[in-house]
Amino acid sequence: MALHYFRILYASQGGPEQPVTTKAGPTLREPGGDYEGMHKQLKRVFNAKPGKRYGRFSTDLGDAPVQAWLKDYLEEKQSFESLTDKLLAQWGELLGTVDLDYQGAIAIAHEQLAEGQVLYIWGLETDASLFLDNRLSLDQGETLSLSRLNLAARIEVDDWLAAEPAQNYITLVQARGTGDLGERFAQLAGFESSVDVDKETQTFLDAVEAFAREGDAGKAQAVRTRAYEFCKDQGAAGEPVPLEALSGYLDEENPERFTEFVSQAQSLPAQTVLHPDQRKVRKLVRISGTGNGLSVSFSSDLMNQAVYYDRNQGQLTITKVPKALREQLDRYLERGQEDNT
Protein backbone atom coordinates (compact mmCIF):
# COMPACT_ATOMS: atom_id res chain seq x y z
CA MET A 1 0.00 0.00 0.00
CA ALA A 2 1.25 3.50 -0.86
CA LEU A 3 -0.50 4.99 2.17
CA HIS A 4 1.76 4.17 5.12
CA TYR A 5 0.02 6.15 7.89
CA PHE A 6 -3.18 8.19 7.98
CA ARG A 7 -4.92 10.16 10.73
CA ILE A 8 -7.81 12.65 10.86
CA LEU A 9 -7.68 15.60 13.27
CA TYR A 10 -10.59 17.87 14.18
CA ALA A 11 -10.75 21.41 15.56
CA SER A 12 -13.64 23.70 16.41
CA GLN A 13 -13.93 27.34 17.41
CA GLY A 14 -17.39 28.69 18.15
CA GLY A 15 -16.56 32.32 17.40
CA PRO A 16 -14.59 35.31 18.69
CA GLU A 17 -13.01 34.80 22.12
CA GLN A 18 -14.29 31.22 22.22
CA PRO A 19 -11.83 28.45 23.15
CA VAL A 20 -10.65 26.03 20.46
CA THR A 21 -11.50 22.39 21.06
CA THR A 22 -9.64 19.59 19.32
CA LYS A 23 -10.08 15.88 18.82
CA ALA A 24 -7.90 13.24 17.17
CA GLY A 25 -9.02 10.14 15.35
CA PRO A 26 -7.25 6.78 15.48
CA THR A 27 -3.81 6.37 13.96
CA LEU A 28 -4.18 4.10 10.95
CA ARG A 29 -1.26 2.10 9.57
CA GLU A 30 -1.62 1.07 5.91
CA PRO A 31 -5.41 1.52 6.11
CA GLY A 32 -6.09 0.74 2.45
CA GLY A 33 -9.67 0.50 1.22
CA ASP A 34 -11.73 3.69 1.42
CA TYR A 35 -8.88 5.66 3.00
CA GLU A 36 -6.54 4.80 0.13
CA GLY A 37 -9.27 5.69 -2.37
CA MET A 38 -9.99 9.01 -0.68
CA HIS A 39 -6.29 9.87 -0.56
CA LYS A 40 -5.85 9.12 -4.27
CA GLN A 41 -8.86 11.26 -5.18
CA LEU A 42 -7.59 14.17 -3.09
CA LYS A 43 -4.23 13.86 -4.86
CA ARG A 44 -5.95 14.12 -8.24
CA VAL A 45 -7.78 17.27 -7.14
CA PHE A 46 -4.56 18.64 -5.65
CA ASN A 47 -2.55 18.08 -8.84
CA ALA A 48 -5.20 19.73 -11.01
CA LYS A 49 -5.64 22.70 -8.68
CA PRO A 50 -4.47 25.96 -10.30
CA GLY A 51 -2.68 28.73 -8.43
CA LYS A 52 -0.52 26.52 -6.22
CA ARG A 53 2.39 28.05 -4.31
CA TYR A 54 5.87 26.54 -4.03
CA GLY A 55 8.41 26.86 -1.28
CA ARG A 56 10.28 25.29 1.62
CA PHE A 57 10.31 25.22 5.41
CA SER A 58 10.72 28.58 7.09
CA THR A 59 14.27 29.24 8.26
CA ASP A 60 12.83 30.31 11.62
CA LEU A 61 12.35 27.06 13.55
CA GLY A 62 9.96 28.85 15.89
CA ASP A 63 7.65 29.52 12.94
CA ALA A 64 8.01 25.99 11.55
CA PRO A 65 8.35 23.41 14.35
CA VAL A 66 6.85 20.81 12.02
CA GLN A 67 10.26 20.26 10.41
CA ALA A 68 11.83 19.20 13.73
CA TRP A 69 8.84 16.99 14.58
CA LEU A 70 8.85 15.42 11.13
CA LYS A 71 12.56 14.72 11.27
CA ASP A 72 12.20 13.03 14.68
CA TYR A 73 9.41 10.87 13.27
CA LEU A 74 11.42 9.85 10.19
CA GLU A 75 14.38 8.97 12.43
CA GLU A 76 11.99 6.88 14.58
CA LYS A 77 12.53 9.10 17.63
CA GLN A 78 8.77 9.50 17.91
CA SER A 79 5.71 7.78 16.49
CA PHE A 80 3.32 9.02 13.81
CA GLU A 81 0.73 9.39 16.55
CA SER A 82 3.07 11.66 18.52
CA LEU A 83 3.84 13.71 15.40
CA THR A 84 0.17 14.25 14.61
CA ASP A 85 -0.68 15.00 18.26
CA LYS A 86 1.82 17.87 18.13
CA LEU A 87 0.44 19.10 14.82
CA LEU A 88 -3.08 19.08 16.26
CA ALA A 89 -1.96 21.03 19.34
CA GLN A 90 -0.24 23.60 17.13
CA TRP A 91 -3.29 23.83 14.86
CA GLY A 92 -5.42 24.61 17.90
CA GLU A 93 -2.98 27.30 19.03
CA LEU A 94 -2.87 28.88 15.57
CA LEU A 95 -6.66 28.96 15.32
CA GLY A 96 -6.78 30.59 18.74
CA THR A 97 -4.83 33.60 17.46
CA VAL A 98 -7.66 34.71 15.16
CA ASP A 99 -11.40 35.20 15.60
CA LEU A 100 -13.04 32.53 13.48
CA ASP A 101 -16.30 30.65 13.47
CA TYR A 102 -14.69 27.43 12.34
CA GLN A 103 -15.12 23.73 12.65
CA GLY A 104 -13.43 21.26 10.39
CA ALA A 105 -11.02 18.39 9.98
CA ILE A 106 -7.57 18.00 8.54
CA ALA A 107 -5.94 14.71 7.60
CA ILE A 108 -2.26 13.85 7.83
CA ALA A 109 -1.06 11.23 5.36
CA HIS A 110 2.39 9.66 5.08
CA GLU A 111 2.81 8.15 1.64
CA GLN A 112 5.65 5.83 0.66
CA LEU A 113 6.26 5.39 -3.06
CA ALA A 114 9.08 3.88 -5.07
CA GLU A 115 10.28 7.37 -5.97
CA GLY A 116 10.24 8.65 -2.39
CA GLN A 117 8.29 9.64 0.71
CA VAL A 118 5.67 12.39 0.84
CA LEU A 119 3.74 13.92 3.73
CA TYR A 120 0.35 15.43 2.93
CA ILE A 121 -1.76 17.73 5.07
CA TRP A 122 -5.31 17.75 3.73
CA GLY A 123 -7.86 20.39 4.69
CA LEU A 124 -11.01 18.27 4.38
CA GLU A 125 -14.14 19.91 2.92
CA THR A 126 -17.73 18.87 3.66
CA ASP A 127 -21.11 19.28 1.97
CA ALA A 128 -24.52 19.44 3.62
CA SER A 129 -26.71 16.49 2.68
CA LEU A 130 -30.08 14.94 3.38
CA PHE A 131 -30.54 11.34 4.47
CA LEU A 132 -33.23 9.07 5.90
CA ASP A 133 -33.03 8.19 9.59
CA ASN A 134 -34.13 4.85 11.04
CA ARG A 135 -37.74 6.10 11.13
CA LEU A 136 -37.57 7.02 7.43
CA SER A 137 -37.71 10.73 8.23
CA LEU A 138 -35.49 13.29 6.58
CA ASP A 139 -32.48 14.44 8.54
CA GLN A 140 -29.49 16.59 7.73
CA GLY A 141 -25.83 15.70 7.93
CA GLU A 142 -22.37 16.42 6.56
CA THR A 143 -20.53 14.35 3.97
CA LEU A 144 -16.91 14.66 2.89
CA SER A 145 -16.37 16.37 -0.45
CA LEU A 146 -13.75 14.72 -2.65
CA SER A 147 -14.05 17.29 -5.42
CA ARG A 148 -13.19 20.47 -3.48
CA LEU A 149 -9.86 21.32 -1.91
CA ASN A 150 -9.15 24.80 -0.55
CA LEU A 151 -6.26 24.03 1.81
CA ALA A 152 -3.58 21.39 1.34
CA ALA A 153 0.17 20.94 1.60
CA ARG A 154 2.53 18.38 0.09
CA ILE A 155 6.03 17.95 1.56
CA GLU A 156 8.50 16.03 -0.64
CA VAL A 157 10.50 14.41 2.14
CA ASP A 158 13.39 13.09 0.05
CA ASP A 159 13.92 16.45 -1.67
CA TRP A 160 14.01 18.11 1.74
CA LEU A 161 16.51 15.66 3.24
CA ALA A 162 18.79 15.47 0.19
CA ALA A 163 22.47 16.39 0.53
CA GLU A 164 21.62 19.48 -1.52
CA PRO A 165 17.97 20.21 -0.60
CA ALA A 166 15.68 21.46 -3.33
CA GLN A 167 14.49 25.05 -3.10
CA ASN A 168 10.83 24.15 -3.39
CA TYR A 169 9.97 20.85 -1.74
CA ILE A 170 6.65 22.11 -0.32
CA THR A 171 3.62 22.67 -2.53
CA LEU A 172 0.76 24.62 -0.99
CA VAL A 173 -2.88 25.00 -1.98
CA GLN A 174 -4.28 28.14 -0.41
CA ALA A 175 -7.44 29.07 -2.27
CA ARG A 176 -8.75 32.59 -2.52
CA GLY A 177 -11.14 33.47 0.24
CA THR A 178 -9.44 31.34 2.89
CA GLY A 179 -8.07 34.51 4.52
CA ASP A 180 -6.79 34.13 8.08
CA LEU A 181 -7.55 30.40 8.04
CA GLY A 182 -5.37 29.97 4.98
CA GLU A 183 -2.52 31.91 6.56
CA ARG A 184 -2.68 29.77 9.71
CA PHE A 185 -2.71 26.62 7.60
CA ALA A 186 0.47 27.77 5.81
CA GLN A 187 2.05 28.32 9.23
CA LEU A 188 1.05 24.82 10.30
CA ALA A 189 2.91 23.43 7.27
CA GLY A 190 5.91 25.67 8.07
CA PHE A 191 5.65 27.10 4.56
CA GLU A 192 7.93 29.81 3.22
CA SER A 193 7.54 30.84 -0.42
CA SER A 194 10.58 30.39 -2.66
CA VAL A 195 9.03 30.63 -6.13
CA ASP A 196 7.52 33.71 -7.77
CA VAL A 197 4.78 31.93 -9.73
CA ASP A 198 3.66 35.09 -11.56
CA LYS A 199 7.20 35.78 -12.72
CA GLU A 200 7.81 32.20 -13.81
CA THR A 201 4.48 32.14 -15.64
CA GLN A 202 5.42 35.25 -17.61
CA THR A 203 8.88 33.79 -18.32
CA PHE A 204 7.24 30.64 -19.70
CA LEU A 205 4.77 32.59 -21.86
CA ASP A 206 7.47 34.92 -23.21
CA ALA A 207 9.77 32.02 -24.07
CA VAL A 208 7.09 30.04 -25.91
CA GLU A 209 5.76 33.10 -27.75
CA ALA A 210 9.21 34.18 -28.90
CA PHE A 211 10.02 30.65 -30.09
CA ALA A 212 6.68 30.35 -31.91
CA ARG A 213 7.30 33.60 -33.81
CA GLU A 214 10.87 32.64 -34.66
CA GLY A 215 9.85 29.83 -37.01
CA ASP A 216 7.36 29.37 -39.82
CA ALA A 217 4.36 31.65 -39.24
CA GLY A 218 2.02 28.85 -40.30
CA LYS A 219 3.34 26.61 -37.52
CA ALA A 220 3.38 29.21 -34.74
CA GLN A 221 -0.02 28.25 -33.35
CA ALA A 222 0.93 24.57 -33.39
CA VAL A 223 3.93 25.41 -31.19
CA ARG A 224 1.71 27.32 -28.74
CA THR A 225 -0.79 24.47 -28.62
CA ARG A 226 1.84 21.81 -27.95
CA ALA A 227 3.42 23.96 -25.24
CA TYR A 228 0.02 24.36 -23.59
CA GLU A 229 -0.70 20.62 -23.83
CA PHE A 230 2.65 19.78 -22.23
CA CYS A 231 2.11 22.29 -19.44
CA LYS A 232 -1.42 20.99 -18.86
CA ASP A 233 -0.22 17.36 -18.65
CA GLN A 234 2.52 18.33 -16.19
CA GLY A 235 0.00 20.18 -14.07
CA ALA A 236 -2.37 17.19 -14.02
CA ALA A 237 0.50 15.07 -12.73
CA GLY A 238 1.42 17.69 -10.12
CA GLU A 239 4.79 18.33 -11.76
CA PRO A 240 6.57 21.56 -12.83
CA VAL A 241 7.75 22.25 -16.40
CA PRO A 242 11.40 21.35 -17.18
CA LEU A 243 12.52 23.25 -20.27
CA GLU A 244 14.54 20.27 -21.55
CA ALA A 245 11.49 18.01 -21.50
CA LEU A 246 9.35 20.73 -23.08
CA SER A 247 11.94 21.19 -25.81
CA GLY A 248 11.81 17.51 -26.73
CA TYR A 249 8.01 17.63 -26.81
CA LEU A 250 7.93 20.68 -29.09
CA ASP A 251 10.33 19.22 -31.65
CA GLU A 252 10.98 15.48 -31.52
CA GLU A 253 13.34 15.60 -34.52
CA ASN A 254 15.47 18.36 -33.01
CA PRO A 255 14.79 18.11 -29.24
CA GLU A 256 17.35 20.75 -28.27
CA ARG A 257 16.09 23.49 -30.59
CA PHE A 258 13.84 25.20 -28.02
CA THR A 259 16.39 25.13 -25.16
CA GLU A 260 19.10 26.46 -27.46
CA PHE A 261 16.80 29.27 -28.57
CA VAL A 262 15.76 30.39 -25.06
CA SER A 263 19.33 30.06 -23.83
CA GLN A 264 20.49 32.57 -26.44
CA ALA A 265 17.41 34.81 -26.62
CA GLN A 266 16.44 34.94 -22.93
CA SER A 267 19.49 33.60 -21.08
CA LEU A 268 17.52 30.67 -19.69
CA PRO A 269 19.70 27.62 -18.93
CA ALA A 270 18.51 24.34 -20.42
CA GLN A 271 18.13 22.89 -16.91
CA THR A 272 15.59 25.57 -15.92
CA VAL A 273 12.41 24.26 -14.26
CA LEU A 274 9.38 26.58 -14.19
CA HIS A 275 6.10 26.54 -12.25
CA PRO A 276 3.62 28.36 -14.51
CA ASP A 277 0.05 29.05 -13.42
CA GLN A 278 -2.22 26.81 -15.49
CA ARG A 279 -4.96 29.43 -15.65
CA LYS A 280 -2.67 31.99 -17.27
CA VAL A 281 -0.99 29.52 -19.62
CA ARG A 282 -4.35 29.15 -21.40
CA LYS A 283 -3.53 32.49 -23.03
CA LEU A 284 -1.42 30.48 -25.47
CA VAL A 285 -4.51 28.87 -26.98
CA ARG A 286 -7.42 31.13 -26.03
CA ILE A 287 -8.21 34.82 -26.36
CA SER A 288 -10.65 36.18 -23.80
CA GLY A 289 -11.81 39.36 -22.16
CA THR A 290 -14.61 40.69 -19.96
CA GLY A 291 -15.96 44.18 -19.42
CA ASN A 292 -18.85 46.56 -20.00
CA GLY A 293 -21.37 43.74 -19.71
CA LEU A 294 -19.60 41.65 -22.36
CA SER A 295 -17.63 38.42 -22.00
CA VAL A 296 -15.81 36.95 -25.01
CA SER A 297 -13.64 33.85 -25.23
CA PHE A 298 -12.52 31.88 -28.28
CA SER A 299 -9.72 29.62 -29.49
CA SER A 300 -6.83 31.60 -30.93
CA ASP A 301 -6.94 29.22 -33.92
CA LEU A 302 -10.09 31.06 -35.07
CA MET A 303 -8.37 34.42 -35.45
CA ASN A 304 -8.61 35.57 -39.09
CA GLN A 305 -10.70 32.51 -39.89
CA ALA A 306 -13.98 32.88 -38.04
CA VAL A 307 -13.05 35.91 -35.93
CA TYR A 308 -11.63 39.13 -37.34
CA TYR A 309 -10.29 42.11 -35.41
CA ASP A 310 -10.04 45.62 -36.84
CA ARG A 311 -7.39 47.26 -34.70
CA ASN A 312 -8.03 50.75 -36.09
CA GLN A 313 -11.77 50.66 -35.44
CA GLY A 314 -11.58 48.51 -32.30
CA GLN A 315 -14.18 46.17 -33.80
CA LEU A 316 -14.46 42.40 -33.49
CA THR A 317 -16.38 40.51 -36.18
CA ILE A 318 -17.56 36.92 -35.70
CA THR A 319 -18.51 35.22 -38.97
CA LYS A 320 -19.30 31.75 -37.65
CA VAL A 321 -21.63 32.18 -34.70
CA PRO A 322 -22.00 29.01 -32.57
CA LYS A 323 -25.33 27.26 -33.04
CA ALA A 324 -26.41 27.57 -29.39
CA LEU A 325 -25.61 31.29 -29.36
CA ARG A 326 -27.41 31.83 -32.65
CA GLU A 327 -30.53 30.14 -31.27
CA GLN A 328 -30.44 32.39 -28.19
CA LEU A 329 -30.11 35.49 -30.37
CA ASP A 330 -33.00 34.39 -32.57
CA ARG A 331 -35.25 33.82 -29.56
CA TYR A 332 -34.28 37.18 -28.10
CA LEU A 333 -35.11 39.00 -31.33
CA GLU A 334 -38.40 37.13 -31.65
CA ARG A 335 -39.39 38.17 -28.13
CA GLY A 336 -38.48 41.76 -28.98
CA GLN A 337 -40.75 41.70 -32.02
CA GLU A 338 -43.63 40.27 -29.97
CA ASP A 339 -43.19 42.99 -27.35
CA ASN A 340 -43.48 45.67 -30.04
CA THR A 341 -46.71 44.29 -31.54
Rank of each mutant, 00 (worst) to 15 (best):
120 Y>G: 02
109 A>K: 07
106 I>E: 02
115 E>I: 06
89 A>W: 10
112 Q>D: 12
87 L>W: 07
114 A>F: 05
88 L>N: 04
113 L>F: 09
119 L>K: 00
99 D>H: 13
101 D>I: 15
95 L>G: 09
90 Q>F: 11
89 A>T: 10
118 V>Y: 03
102 Y>G: 08
102 Y>H: 12
96 G>H: 06
88 L>D: 04
109 A>C: 11
102 Y>T: 14
113 L>M: 07
87 L>N: 09
112 Q>M: 14
96 G>I: 04
116 G>D: 02
108 I>P: 03
112 Q>S: 15
102 Y>K: 06
96 G>C: 03
119 L>R: 00
121 I>H: 03
104 G>D: 10
112 Q>G: 08
93 E>L: 15
104 G>A: 06
111 E>V: 09
101 D>Y: 15
99 D>K: 11
87 L>P: 06
99 D>T: 11
105 A>C: 15
115 E>D: 09
92 G>V: 01
100 L>Y: 04
98 V>M: 08
98 V>D: 14
107 A>K: 01
91 W>M: 06
116 G>V: 03
109 A>E: 07
104 G>S: 08
117 Q>C: 13
118 V>K: 02
118 V>D: 00
120 Y>S: 03
92 G>W: 00
121 I>K: 03
119 L>N: 00
115 E>N: 05
94 L>V: 05
105 A>N: 12
103 Q>L: 07
95 L>T: 09
96 G>K: 04
102 Y>M: 10
119 L>V: 10
111 E>W: 05
104 G>M: 10
110 H>Y: 08
92 G>K: 03
109 A>Y: 06
87 L>Q: 13
114 A>Q: 03
95 L>C: 04
114 A>Y: 09
